[in-house]
C-alpha cells in the first residue's frame, strides 16, 4: 500500500492510439477497488478514495481520465439477460465480402438486439465466416427472427450464415487484476 499512496498523479504516460494504455499504480489500485462494483453509498467516490488513501477529487479525475482513454468503456449496470427473460443467446456468424465488412459491421452492430459485433478471420475451407454478431432473445424462434432481420439488412452480401446457440458454460472466470 505504501507504493500506492506515495504515487503522484504526474508521470502517467499517454498511450499510443491503439496500443495498451499505460496505467500507474494508483490507477491500478482504483481498478482493483472498483472491479467488483461501485459502492452503494451516497458518496461512492469518496468511499473509494478513503479505501485507496487518496483525495476524492483525484479519484474522480482519474476515473474520468480512464473513461477518456477508453480504459473504462463506461460506468454502468450490467443486466443478467437470463433473469430478464433473454434465455436464447446465439452467436450468429456471417460470410460477407471482405471489401464490404467495414461498412456492414457497424450497421449490424447498431441493431438493438446485437450486443457484440466483431470482424474475425475465416479458416477456409472449414470456417467461411468473418462477421460475428451476438443475438439475445426470449426464445430460439425469436432469435431466428432476429437473425433473419440481419440477413435482410445484409441483402446480397449475406453469402451464408449460421447461429450457434450456447449449450453449456464449461468455464467462466472474470478477468481480474490482483492488488
Amino acid at each position: 500500500m505504501s507504493i500506492v499512496t506515495s504515487a503522484t498523479s504526474q508521470g502517467i504516460e499517454e498511450a499510443r492510439a491503439d496500443g495498451p494504455a499505460a496505467i500507474d499504480s494508483l490507477d491500478r489500485a482504483l481498478i482493483v477497488a472498483t472491479q467488483a462494483g461501485l459502492p452503494l453509498v451516497p458518496e461512492p467516490y469518496a468511499h473509494i478514495a478513503a479505501e485507496v488513501g487518496i483525495d476524492v477529487q483525484e479519484v474522480m479525475q482519474r476515473l474520468r481520465r480512464m473513461q477518456d482513454r477508453g480504459i473504462i468503456r463506461r460506468i454502468a449496470a450490467v443486466p443478467n439477460h437470463y433473469r430478464l427473460g433473454f434465455t436464447a443467446n446465439g452467436m450468429s456468424v456471417w460470410n460477407v465480402p471482405d471489401d464490404r465488412i467495414g461498412e456492414l459491421g457497424p450497421r449490424v452492430g447498431a441493431l438493438e438486439f446485437v450486443s457484440h459485433c466483431y470482424h474475425r478471420p475465416r479458416h477456409l475451407p472449414d470456417w467461411p465466416y468473418n462477421l460475428f454478431a451476438m443475438v439475445h432473445a426470449g426464445s430460439r424462434e425469436e432469435a431466428h427472427r432476429k437473425v433473419q432481420m440481419i440477413s435482410q439488412l445484409l441483402g446480397e452480401d449475406d453469402h451464408g450464415h449460421e447461429v450457434l446457440f450456447s449449450q453449456r458454460i464449461l468455464k467462466k472466470t472474470g478477468l481480474r487484476l490482483t492488488a
Binding site: T34, G37, L38, M66, I72, R74, P79
Partner: peptide
C-alpha cells in the same frame, strides 16, 4: 443486475 460499476 450482475454488476454495477466501471466496465474496464
Amino acid at each position: 443486475l450482475t454488476r454495477f460499476g466501471p466496465m474496464y
